[in-house]
Design a binder for these strands. Sequence first.
RNA 1: GGGUGAUUAGCUCAGCUGGUUUAGAGCACCUGCCUUACAAGCAGGGGGUCAUAGGUUCGAAUCCUAUAUUACCCA
Length: 914
Amino acid sequence: MSLSARYQPQETETKWYDYWLKKNYFHSEPDEREPFTVVIPPPNVTGVLHMGHMLNNTIQDILVRKARLSGKNACWVPGTDHASIATEAKVVRLLREQGIKKGDIGRDAFLEHAFAWKDKYGGIILDQLKRLGASCDWERTRFTMEPSLSDAVLHVFVNLYEKGRIYRGLRMTQWDPEALTVLSNEEVIYKEENARLFHLKYYRTDNPDLFITIATQRPETIMADVAIAVHPQDERYQSFIGKSVFVPLINREIPIIADAYVDIAFGTGALKITPAHDQNDYEIGKKHKLPVIDILTPNGKLNEKATILVGQDRFEARKNIKKLLEEAGALEKIEDYRTSIGHSERTDAVVEPRLSLQWYVDMKPFAKTALEAVKSGEVKFYPESMFNMYQSWLQEDNIRDWCISRQLWWGQRIPAWFLKTEEEDENQQVFVAKTADDALKQAIEKTGNASLTLADLKQDEDVVDTWFSSWLWPISVFDGFKDPKEIAYYYPTQVLVTGWDIMFFWVARMIMSGYEFSPELLDAVKIKEKGAMPFKAVYYTGMVRDNKRRKMSKSLGNSPDALALIDNYGADGVRFGVLSSAAAGNDIIFDAPFDPKTQEVLNESKLCEQGRNFCNKLWNALRLLQGWEVTEIEKNDGDHAIAELANQWLDARINQTLVLLQDQFNSYRLSEALITVYKLIWDDFCSWYLELIKPAYGEPIQKKVLEQAIAHFEKLMTILHPFMPFVTEEIWHQLKQRAEGEDCVVSVWPTVNEYDKLLIADVDLLKLVTTSVREIRNNHQIKMKEELTLYLQQSILTNQWLHRKGIKEALCKTSVLNEVSLTEEEITNTVTFLGGNDKFYLVINTTINVEEEKGRLVKEIEYYQKFISSVENKLTNEKFANSAPADIVNKERQKLADGQTKLKGLMEALTKLG
RNA sequence: GGGUGAUUAGCUCAGCUGGUUUAGAGCACCUGCCUUACAAGCAGGGGGUCAUAGGUUCGAAUCCUAUAUUACCCA
């Protein structure tokens, strides 16, 4: 069967993925082997595959496949995250299009819609991961809102509440007026924007001629002012302290207070205090026991407490109040300035500080544990520098309590019940329990009122933050809170691969929950032996950016379509492209070009093209092998000698590379590892080995030689498999008939054997000489096919080299020579070049341009002269000789001696030319 | 405003513990090849004051300080 000249990834990829699934190769059950566990960072259930996922999951797949080949019990758990805000927003929008309002249909009906939607569209992303080749254990697919994982959330909530680590409190929060929910600080994105600073006059109540000017960005909130604050040392306002002023427009009287918080230099040095609508003002208000006047509705409109502009949106009100203030003569001036304004990560709405009752996790003890875990090296970060960011976040003075309640329905409902009769406030009695019945028992016990029934209780309306379920992911995917059997085997997981942007949202919190809960779930011996951490290492990927360095995002439309890329280049090609410029932690500038006309991103990539070309190269190497005729007759001729040399040499090179690869895998330098394998295959295997063993035109290849070549090829396919699984599996099967279950995906990673370093050096010289001869051919326009004669200077080294079995024959083959012999004389009328320290003389059948030759030699002589003098300078420096380590000094001496030998040779050659 | 990183060839990046690196790769570029596996290829080549200025050291792309540019994190 003859193969097409180009590798066709499309059919091949589906074929093999289905086959692997059919053979259940990705499924893991606990056994006696060492586990290699990876949990996927669960993508949003609403998500579609983007470049970040491609990178992230390619890396995980490489690690998992490598572990599988290395004989470990590899288990990669996939799943999705319910992503409360994002998904709820999507479902709300969808319902709105159908004319249904969330509030009208009620909680249960809404959740039905949401689940229906999730069942229909959720998990698309998981199917897309299959196209990438992700070797996840799909039987273990989990979802953060499925019953078992929700139970874990409730369990942990109750547990932490009982430990006094969760509390309910009235706090200033970041409110999203569009999603109508509170946000955690981390969900607020600050953006630098143009804003205006309004200078407003507040007139004294005791003297209508005196006024104080304040500067504010938010004039629409003046109706909520409760005081003006100045710095106690501010000379300008000493006479104002203790007096009162009228709020413009509404003429409510408010006091002027002194507080050192006020920045004398900012604005006018006087600050309006609006506790309901500013975090800092709230703190000052509390300190000075000032009232709180909240003039905004949850969706950001002015309420009746504002008394004017009621019903208007905050931004509309800002415009309108400007006119009113002007008319009232209260507006002194407006200044432009730059400030950063918080936006909701999900809806992009400008967040509103809002006072509300929320649930919090006390983070101080957690932070300490999490910081210590990484500091001590129990959890390792790659790259290490990520620790700085981690530390600055977890430091005691930076850590904030985690607000975990969200005013949404899509998520785990907070397991807290209140008495219906009580006013909703901080002091309200609360019964935290897994079920309503348990809560009722508590209520009866605590109130002493035995007649209470479920009807007297009301469950908290809110759900917990999504991250409150995903922080349990490494435990809950194994149902660890229910049954410790699996987790005892799989925990701790090996490595977490994620972007650094969710280091705080997720990574830090998983470390916290891991140390908090795994000791309760696993026995002490196991913990002592394996550790309590959720993962031993974290590999942080960079953000994927476009060629203008913008983060690739759906909203910018600057991300190529991941699936279209796979269509264009094959999954292997895309995996190659995505990985090859992705050192850990570094942002990746993905090279997809933009259409110059439409400015739309194209689904093209030079790097992916390189990956595709690599597949094609492999494919053609296979075609070469398959095209050879085979002979059983063994001849002890030159070809045989070459084949033996090539065989031993490639074996040495593979072993040498395996050592390097292991080091690169251990330190997670995967893009380097890929390049290493790429070069081994393209340069060593294809360009040198195959060319060496290639029989002359029309001649057959010896059976043994072909078998050796196939064995090498097969080994290389195993080594490349983690990076490019599809093409390697295909070639693996094309190479020879396979028994049932004899597949590349479950082949055995080669063990490292001793290898002959001298042989590698000898072949290096062979390559060097060959390249030099080819260059001379190029320069003198000598045809590749024309056979030439080569002499080499007699020396111990050249003598040994040329007498290694196969070298001479190999050199004749690669350099197209009819004769190679040693000489003690300078050979005239030849082109001289250096190989190592020795001189080589190439006889060419055209007249040599003496001037040109001289020029070439002079250039080389100059290079070595400069080189020698720099080494000499070093060596004659006494301080160097005295303080540098002996081996460095010896190396320098060797460098000098080699340089001098080379220089001498070149000078002689130059003299010969006359 | 506080912090962290980056700056190496036209582009995208390696270069780990300072010394076999007067700096490597891929792409792009130049020259020559449709050579019987592969033009998605082969053979060869050119191209860098390692951002700038100081310093430490026998020795600096690598360590330190400052500056510039740039990206991000936090408020």
